[in-house]
Design a binder for these strands. Structure first.
Lengths: 188, 188, 188, 188
DNA sequence: CGTTAAGCGAGACGGTACGTCATGTCTTGCG
DNA sequence: CGCAAGACATGACGTACCGTCTCGCTTAACG
């Protein structure tokens, strides 16, 4: 049964179809291949319906990322900082480099370099939630007394910064050894 | 007197005008405002002249970056690793966030997220030369014997990774204290 | 207190509001400016209410014309054909060129060139009633015996044809002399 | 050999293709079926090429009419006014009602009712040339001395006005008798 | 020392996607 | 049941750039 609008706001069906279509096209054809017309066609939705709810294709990807991210990346709680990090950082690396959500993240990070408005939304809606997960592990370690005087924010940057650097800048693979080095530098 | 072509090789005048126009437009209007037509108009050059020498606008920016970068960012040589880093890292941060070349770098980094071909050229022509400078300081320290057993590549990532992460991802400012923390973590 | 529907038949209030809104917009902004959405907004009526009762905006204008025309253009009865025509033809010209109803008539005549269905309704509901008035004068003259053997239909065409031609085709103003010429040609 | 633009102005090939496509679509699907996109597709031309040279689809039809009209409707010269008119007026009627150019003329006449700017161009480029032909017959008669004191302009209106009135307003067919009546009224 | 071919400015061309506007259909809840 | 409200699929609008092409001028090496 097709839904053709009603007085109580938007069609959830259309919303989902748009987000999924955007996601799929991004993964299949890259960011340049993502067009509002393409999304509309693939989602079986009118272009105007997209423009009614999203100002641009970037906003669609932001929504798509927010929707999907929340189902992923639950940080482990293994009882020791070193173990938690050894489990979590590879998960994060895989998330960023291998998953569809990671592809969306990278595309948004790319677009954030071109547009300050995108950058602001990207930080609030993508980076902050990811950092919250990063922080969680360190905070639990602090609560256990492993690090009495830790500056959590700086520590997060030192831990995940090199990882994002490899993902977004150098393209180097993130190896077990690389992560071990990061953990050792922090624990030392 | 305008130059209208010759039989043997390209017009250096046109090349310079194009690179400068691209640079200027990027800084003034952002990456989205950079168009081949706009560059041509501003440089007083025919569109075809651009397409004859550059496959896309990204290649223009790459050339512009390479031209300009070589005049910047000479790493200091103060005799101690801590001093060198304390002098160099703020220079790098300023280069990335404040200068026109930094704006080009960020734009290219952004576009590299969207296109693997751009990513490859970006790494070869932008990232590698910058990393060469990063490495120089650590190599000199190693030669002085400050760190006998240092893995230079990993150390570079740990040093500059958090810095790029702030520039490209979180947008947090890069403070004196932040840099001191990075240096301390390495020297420890 | 606004009316929001009732159980027994359509709202006359809504009908009037729609016809007036269509008329007003046509006069103010021209035929291209007449849109169903615009009419609905101006009339304070839902779009669906319009589509429930009129198949298209042209049908709205047809209804508007029929409503208004009946209050206008009563042919005079001065006792002689020449006098009647000398009084009536200028009235007709003014009606077509100066009044709001004339504007509606011209818009419908224009649309009739594009769509045979419109043309049919236009002739039945607009042209025929106007021709009835034209004919009336000639018929009364025939009844008075002024013209025993007159072909009324052909005479009407010869009289008002040039007038419509000027209004719809050449745009020439309709002068006293022009009308006198038409009358003279008929009476001769 | 395809032509893709040069420094000396527009492609005559594209111009012709556009005019013919517009003409064909108008005849096949009516004025409402004429769209710039449809013309572009049918002519094998880019939409922008159309907008570069014509402000609107009406301007295309105007050009198409002007191009085609000049090859049609040469008034006869049979030596007497009555004969000339008896030959010419049916030709005119057929031109307006049966030919493709007539369809374009009627469409333009329709659009002229909606837009004063169109009306102005329509009169200058369509109506005036047609009237020139109408006038020719009467002028030749005047030169022959058939009508010493004829007001040619008014006579043209009286002759062709009823004819256009039937074509554009009533839709009545234009019969031999009807035309004879018009000629008789003038000659009388 | 004139020929001639490459580089150039100019700009029209076939395309693709943009973001907007109006159409006519639909669903909902109030009166 | 009629209505106001408004979301929806559809499709054309007019614009902006893309990358390709042709043209005629300028200019320097070659004949």
């Amino acid at each position: 049964m097709r839904h053709h609008g009603n007085r109580h706001g938007r069609s959830e069906q259309a919303r989902q179809a748009v987000l999924e279509a955007a996601d799929d096209i991004l993964v299949e054809r890259g960011f340049a291949g993502v067009t509002v017309e393409g999304i509309a066609a693939r989602a079986g939705v009118a272009k105007q319906t997209i423009y009614r709810w999203w100002p641009s294709k970037v906003d669609i990807l932001l929504d798509a990322f927010v929707d999907d991210m929340n189902e992923e990346l639950t940080p482990p709680d293994l009882g020791s900082l070193a173990d938690d990090l050894a489990a979590y950082l590879p998960m994060l690396a895989t998330f960023l480099t291998e998953t569809d959500e990671g592809a969306v993240f990278r595309a948004l990070a790319g677009q954030a370099q071109h547009d300050p408005a995108v950058a602001a939304r990207f930080r609030d809606e993508c980076v902050l939630p990811l950092r919250a997960r990063d922080r969680l592990i360190l905070q639990r370690a602090a609560e256990r007394g492993e690090f009495a005087d830790l500056d959590v924010e700086a520590a997060v940057d030192q831990l995940v910064g090199p990882l994002y650097y490899r993902v977004l800048v150098t393209g180097e693979p993130i190896t077990r050894e690389f992560i071990d080095g990061l953990v050792r530098a922090l624990v030392a």
